[in-house]
């Protein structure tokens, strides 16, 4: 199995509080993996275990096929949710320090920093103190020190919080470039919509349990319920709607007589849309016809609800 990281029944308790309950994950190499779930679900604990900041009570973690070892910290880049830098330290000095802590030599760290500072166009910040920089500027430095040692696995906890939209986009592009260069990436967030478009794989964590994981496209396929948004151009909207309602399961309809536009959602019995389209196209011209794909948070809510029902 070509995985960068495997968690095998990882359990972690803090006193009486169960933070992780037998979580098992497989994170494929060179993928973008979303660890999704509400605040307090256990995501950060899991990430801290991967970073060897804390250790599991039971269960094992494998990095690149080997049981997780101290030397692996230099192959992981971690941007924590609670992040910051030494305020009164100069940018360059600080970046060199953090890079050396990750095992880079001084000269190597300096060369790579030069590259990144040029790339993000912040070369003249080298001798400034963090407290003199804006929050967005500091976040750029933070990003650089996270990726500087060319980790095989990058972990971003709440990656885009604190970034303004422009910087968030710059960072997003950089992350995609790193992925293209072969890095595996984990995004952990409770704002599922913010990373959904980037993730190839996801795991949903809720109350210390993994409730769902897998390839996002497959999950979506499994969760889609053949509901389509339909927009028609029709002058006789009212009648048409009544007629359709008799033959299909229609909901959320809305007719604008002035524009002659009719919108509604239709629930089809199967993936096969031909009967419906044939039926409609004989009666009105189709303005749009889009499958509603459930978002990650829809899936999350749906799964949690169905789990609760089963219990």
């Amino acid at each position: 199995m070509n995985t960068i990281l495997v968690a095998d029944e990882v359990t972690k308790k803090f006193g009486n509080h169960l933070a992780l309950n037998k979580i098992s994950l497989e994170i494929p190499k060179n993928s973008i993996y979303g660890l999704l779930g509400p605040n307090g679900a256990g995501k950060t604990t899991l990430i801290r275990i991967i970073n060897q900041i804390t250790y599991p009570d039971t269960g094992k973690v494998y990095f690149d096929g080997q049981p997780l070892q101290p030397r692996h910290v230099s192959m992981i880049g971690y941007l924590p949710e609670e992040r910051g830098l030494y305020k009164s330290m100069k940018v360059g000095e600080q970046a060199l320090y953090l890079a050396q802590l990750k095992g880079l030599s001084l000269s190597e760290a300096r060369t790579r920093l030069k590259y990144w500072f040029d790339r993000l166009d912040i070369g003249d910040w080298w001798n400034r103190k963090i407290q003199e920089l804006s929050k967005g500027m500091a976040q750029k430095i933070q990003f650089i020190v996270t990726v500087l040692h060319k980790p095989k696995l990058l972990i971003f906890d709440e990656p885009f919080s604190g970034f303004d939209p422009i910087n968030a986009n710059i960072i997003k592009d950089e992350i995609l470039q790193l992925k293209a260069d072969g890095t595996s990436i984990i995004f952990s967030t409770h704002r599922m919509e913010s990373v959904e478009e980037l993730c190839e794989y996801i795991a949903l964590i809720h109350n210390a349990e993994k409730i769902l994981d897998g390839k996002l496209s497959e999950i979506k396929k499994a969760y889609k319920n053949n509901v389509f948004n339909v927009g028609l151009m029709a002058n006789n909207g009212e009648e048409l709607l009544q007629e359709l309602d008799g033959n299909f399961s229609i909901s959320g309809s809305n007719y604008d007589p002035e524009e002659g536009q009719l919108h509604f959602r239709v629930q089809l019995p199967s993936e096969d849309t031909r009967d419906f389209l044939q039926y409609v196209s004989g009666r009105a011209s189709i303005h749009n016809f889009v499958e509603t794909i459930p978002s990650a948070s829809d899936i999350f809510i749906q799964t949690v609800q169905s789990k609760n029902l089963h219990e």
């Binding site: 970073n51 900041i53 101290p70 910290v73 230099s74 992981i76 971690y78 924590p80 609670e82 992040r83 910051g84 830098l85 030494y86 305020k87 953090l98 802590l101 990750k102 933070q142 020190v145 996270t146």
Partner: peptide, 18 residues
């Protein structure tokens, strides 16, 4: 305390042991 309030602490201990 400074490391805690500046939130640099977790960055550091992802590289070194506490």
């Amino acid at each position: 305390i400074e490391e805690k309030t500046s939130r640099v602490i977790e960055v550091i201990i992802s590289s070194v042991k506490p």
